[in-house]
Design a protein around this nucleic acid. Structure first.
Lengths: 171, 171
DNA sequence: GTCTATAAGGGGATAGAC
DNA sequence: GTCTATCCCCTTATAGAC
């Protein structure tokens, strides 16, 4: 049941935003009552926390791996795109949700992103390197637009196209 | 007074999102009362409408000009970036505000964006062309991140860097 | 034009029955 | 575990005094 709630919350949060989704909306979609939700979660914020936690773990892990194995730019961008697809677009939609900047900050999302930017920009990056790194990540993030609404996957050809585009941005 | 309200609303909407900004917030920042706001606007939605209208006009105008004068990719992207900077980042922050998708649709933002994508992708675009066009626009949109919070401008060097990056994406 | 006061409704959250 | 009923607060919006 708890997992069912998280699934629904994930979908509604990334469709209507956090502020635009009420506990009632979640309860109805799950097929229960508000109090039913509150048996499993102490607050609405707690739901968001759990929704964000898995994609955040993945992102941290990606960064760790990239550091340990000295990922090339291509490997890094490829893994980043895979992460976006895997998280079912939740994270990267909520990314821009201005109504939850505090929680996002609590999950240190900006810090993690900055780490990625610096990994992409190389050692001792110039200002230009940093601008290009940020732009490359933006290209990778457009993957969201191409995630099939049905099975949540993304066409291989498009994925390759995006990867190449991101690499061209860097150089 | 009405203009002052619009200014404040613009800032708060793009900082906290539409749902995250209450009429009270706006009133306090302006230095008046809720009813004071409602003397000038019939509803909160009406405020959003007016906030969006100017950047939307600019965007329409850009598309019209680009069509009439057969803008090259570079001209188009440059003008697009200028528009983002000029609009004081409002539009392009609200762009991703999931709590106002209805209003955005009413302003036909998606349609306008599609027009831009197709202008960038060239005539008879392949699927790859379209993917690259969307990616290039994403690069241009990262300009938001570099807009100085102080005077709302953007460093010329960064702007050029972004333009070149977007052009590399296309080819 | 701008205020205070208030209505009407929805939000998150809790109590207590079953 | 899940429900109904309820609380309290905040939101949008309006009425009416000044």
């Amino acid at each position: 049941m708890k997992n069912r709630i998280l699934e629904v919350a994930q979908i509604l949060f990334s469709r209507c935003g956090y502020a635009g989704t009420s506990i009632n909306d979640i309860a109805q979609q799950v097929g229960t009552s508000k109090a039913g939700i509150y048996y499993h979660f102490r607050s609405k914020e707690a739901i968001l926390d759990e929704v964000l936690s898995q994609p955040m773990k993945d992102l941290s892990q990606l960064i760790e791996q990239a550091k340990k194995n000295h990922f090339k730019e291509e490997q890094l961008l490829r893994a980043y795109i895979n992460g976006i697809v895997k998280s079912g677009k939740v994270m990267y939609e909520l990314w821009n949700d201005l109504s939850i900047q505090d929680q996002l900050q609590h999950h240190q999302i900006n810090e993690q992103c900055e780490e990625l930017v610096y990994l992409l920009a190389g050692s001792q990056p110039s200002e230009s390197d940093l601008v290009r790194a940020r732009a490359a990540m933006a290209v990778a993030q457009t993957a969201i637009q191409f995630i099939a609404n049905g099975d949540g996957s993304i066409d291989k050809k498009i994925q390759t196209e995006l990867l190449n585009a991101a690499l061209r941005v860097l150089n």
